[in-house]
């Protein structure tokens, strides 16, 4: 207890006594608030101010008039948005690409973690881990540059794969390239959480399984997988909540006019209409649609997880 507190306690004046608990709390914690203040101010400015800025989706935003000064127009921008064919293309591309990524790239790290876990030689395991984690640390600009060079017509790889044109230029193969290149970047890294979950499994379970004559595949199927099920569910929830955020960098670096029709997603769409064309209100409406649907998805999947008896995110 600090000196100030005891001074107040010693003076039993009426008004002071009534404010006393609050003041005491303040005195006790004022330094903490001093430390906390810059952080709170930061979140207010950089996160909550833009949230207020979302109102321009319902306004006719003019740069000169600012966010507050511009006129309300109700749902005008949403009506235009929902009538725009480009928007629907972007939305369906987003969902399709996200869906492919979910189907292929979500289970892949689980599988890889199970396989890595079956490696008994720790040196070999470490080497493989070092290799497969690495692409995670490179930016899409670097990986994109490598892919573009790799799939250029004269790299020799196309012939090896039996392709006549680069998948970067082929609308029929571009999405597969997006899925596979993301797999390349993230599959190794994705194993970490699963490996940690697997490491936490009680070894007695395996011993018991072995005594019962279970094969290695059976041990995986009946002990390892069920033990990491809740981790899988939580990560699946996180992933589903982000289904409309398919990632700007990867697509922006890799795409080109030949494949716009299959790869223009909401992120690139909002960028193009907003930043390039300067249609701020319209782009904000598109962005708001994206984040609200994302939020609803996240809340929904979280509930589903709880229904299923899993822990959920909150």
């Amino acid at each position: 207890m600090s000196a100030t507190d005891s001074t107040f306690a010693a003076k039993p004046q009426k008004p002071l006594v009534r404010r006393h608990p609050m003041l005491k709390e303040w005195n006790k914690h004022k330094y903490y608030f001093v430390l906390l203040f810059p952080g709170l101010l930061y979140f207010l400015l950089i996160h909550y101010w833009p949230m207020y800025g979302i109102t321009i989706a319902f306004k006719d935003f003019k740069l000169m008039e600012g966010i507050t000064g511009s006129n309300w127009v109700g749902l005008k921008w949403f009506k235009i948005l929902f009538a725009a064919p480009d928007f629907w293309t972007a939305l369906s591309n987003t969902i399709i690409i996200s869906f492919y990524k979910l189907v292929f790239n979500f289970p892949a790290p689980i599988l890889l973690a199970l396989l890595l876990n079956e490696v008994y030689h720790s040196g070999f395991k470490r080497i493989i881990q070092t290799v497969v984690y690495f692409p995670h640390f490179l930016s899409w600009v670097i990986l994109g540059g490598i892919l573009i060079s790799l799939f250029s017509t004269d790299s020799g790889l196309l012939k090896l794969l039996g392709l006549s044109i680069s998948p970067l230029m082929d609308p029929g193969k571009f999405r597969a390239l997006l899925v596979l290149s993301e797999l390349w970047k993230e599959v190794g890294w994705g194993t970490i959480i699963y490996l940690a979950a697997i490491a936490g499994i009680n070894p007695d379970l395996y011993d018991a399984g072995k005594i019962d004559g279970a094969s290695r595949l059976q041990l995986i199927r009946y002990i390892t997988l069920p033990s990491i099920a809740s981790t899988i569910v939580v990560l699946l929830i996180l992933r589903t909540g982000h289904i409309l955020h398919v990632g700007f960098d990867q697509i922006f670096i890799l795409y080109n006019p030949l494949v716009y029709s299959v790869s223009d997603v909401l992120d690139t769409y909002v960028y193009r209409v907003g930043i390039t064309m300067g249609r701020y209100s319209f782009a904000t409406a598109a962005g708001l649609f994206q984040s609200v649907v994302g939020l609803i998805l996240l809340l929904f999947t979280n509930r589903v997880a709880k229904r299923l008896g899993e822990e959920g995110l909150w």
């Binding site: 979140f43 101010w49 833009p50 207020y52 966010i67 909002v270 930043i275 984040s291 939020l295």
Partner: peptide
């Protein structure tokens, strides 16, 4: 600090930014 007054409010204030954001254009304007 467990004893910090309104701690829950502050933590929620920070956490909320993880599930919702102003998005590209409003952030750009800010």
């Amino acid at each position: 600090k467990r004893t910090l007054p309104f701690k829950k409010v502050f933590v929620s204030f920070v956490l909320f930014t993880m599930i919702f954001s102003g998005g590209l254009i409003p952030t750009y304007l800010v």
